[in-house]
Design a protein around this nucleic acid. Structure first.
Lengths: 199, 199, 199, 199
DNA sequence: CATGAATGAGGGTTCATTCAT
DNA sequence: TATGAATGAACCCTCATTCAT
């Protein structure tokens, strides 16, 4: 039995709220976002948000949770291929993903605007998992002789993740001071290759 | 004629306000900081701030302006030495500077907590100037044969600045998910060398 | 013609709403009660209440009206017997009635939680009628020589009613500071006898 | 050193707020009272209340605390005299006190409108203390042979307190259904005497 | 008839800003 | 100048009421 027309509309509205919230939180941070702005962005009344979410924080949590899941799906690297190839694929996927998701990079870099002290364990696990994933790819590359043998794996993984999330995030922000053009992405990719490949 | 004793006391208070503001804005962002907290931190009354600054935004602008000047002073690279050596010196100076200035990295990465859309042209010039400085150092290195000849200079400068500001900023934040230990700094320095040095 | 099955079901729902309302208003007062809580308590939808009642205030008025009728029925004193005997019977009936009707004592004591200023003339008539009934019983007792001859009848009736309603009301409230045990009820009954009986 | 004119005005405003709060809470209960109404009643702005009181509940607590102290002072019975005489003096003092303090009787009778479950231990002690005081006076009267020897002291004290607080409270409420005229007070006093005096 | 999703006015509270002292 | 008491706009959230289904 398909959902009634009513409930379908309801779910659609919930999604519009989440979308508006994603956009507002991403652009203005948690504190800078007003519930009214989200409601207006979603084209619904102020009070409707509270039918779906306990309060502003809860809405934020749900947004983050969904975003992390989407991101993990988008990021999954190709199973086959060399380490550099896989890292570059991840990098480009992430850039693509963030093009419409300003919130993620903010989360990945512990953006102050989100006042994440309240949501600490929301994203920590994902951050660690992501870094571990990168580290394991690096380890594969070292084992295969594709990468320098003397990399300090956890710390290099940190640097790689950092570049990945920063240049991904720029894909969204339209900030001329921190641009994101295809050639810049290529430069970053090449930068990584040069730094990681054996002499 | 030296400023009267009265004005000297006044200037001192102004500085204490700026110092308290720097600390508050850096820790809590623009939205998270209250004027009362700054006044309390400076040990003056609430209203006195408005003798020196038009309003909260103006105070913020002045804080940023001064911070940028301090940072530029701190960053000035050694006149002599190889490009990599000079870049690394800048990197380490910046880390040191940021260790006590949480606000700067936030500015350099367009921290959402500051709601910088309102203050857009505050720091752009400084950011451009910094990147140009790095680019010119890179150009010197290329000219001297110390760096790869085929670097896309403006874009590589962007990447270098990015790493520099991110790992500088961590020096202040005590976040276990984004640590800052000497070996990580060394890893970043080596990462830069590997990426920039010729084959 | 009996009501159609449809209307019978409707009437049953109306009654369930009234019952839930009686319970909620009694426990939480007018302001503390939400329309949603009443609907949930009655197992009907939020909107259905507005088929039967203009609004929350109207529902409250009807609840009070019905409650007063029930109470009058429960209170009707035995036709025969001495004045003290009849008063005591009323007292004990009232205690029993209130044991399951928290709203009544609140009404009888002009409970502030009900914000009765809005509903002023709702219960006044019943209060007067009750006091008149008590006064007439007292008059019978005086005439029969069973009670003191010099009682200020309307005012003594007020006192008797007051004790009656207060100690009835405690039967419901589970407040340890204002207990209601059988011996306390007995004490009140005896107190009344002692005060009213001739020297 | 006398308080500066500024601080004197401040304290005066605090008192006006407390007075307005006492009146509003007393008339409308805790839930029925809005912070705005208190502010308006005191002739100050909405926000000023929060300079003196943490929030609405805190303001309520302070009001209750002060009221209880005032009441205890007003109630203190004469040291000398017979038990009935002392009780009657207390009764009349209380009536007088409550004539301007609607909140107290509400507290003494656990008014639902105040949602006292939150403030339970604020007034319980005072209620118990008051009842104990009445009980001890009764005990003295029994010992002196002035009162019936067979009184169930704690429970009779309850009844006496109940009459005392109820008829005190009416002094404030201008409710015609529950009047308060001098003769009614006299009737209650006489009622108490008749109930407590030996046969 | 019956539903419950949707609305929006109004509540308590915070805080940038002003101004009498 | 310097103060901090005072203001009031704007925040988040609740809930009585309506209306499309």
């Amino acid at each position: 039995m398909p959902p009634s027309r009513r409930r379908a509309g309801s779910e659609e509205r919930r999604q519009r709220i989440l979308e508006a919230a994603r956009s507002c939180f991403g652009e203005l941070g948690f504190g800078g976002t007003t519930v009214g702005a989200i409601a207006a962005g979603a084209g619904v009344s102020n009070g409707l948000l509270y039918q779906f979410f306990r309060n502003k924080e809860h809405l934020f949590e749900v947004v983050v949770e969904e975003l992390m899941l989407d991101w993990v799906r988008a990021l999954r690297p190709p199973e086959r291929g060399g380490a550099l190839e896989r890292l570059e694929a991840m990098f480009r996927s992430s850039v693509e993903f963030c093009r419409t998701n300003p919130l993620l990079p903010a989360l990945l870099t512990r953006d102050r605007g989100l006042q994440l002290q309240r949501f600490d364990n929301l994203s920590s696990d994902r951050v660690y998992a992501f870094r571990d994933l990168v580290a394991s790819i690096l380890r594969d590359g070292v084992a295969a002789g594709e990468l320098r043998a003397d990399l300090d794996l956890p710390r290099v993984a940190d640097v790689v993740c950092q570049l990945l999330s920063e240049y991904s995030s720029r894909a969204y922000r339209g900030d001329p001071a921190f641009p994101s053009d295809p050639q810049l992405i290529d430069t970053v990719a090449r930068f990584l290759r040069d730094a990681l490949s054996p002499g």
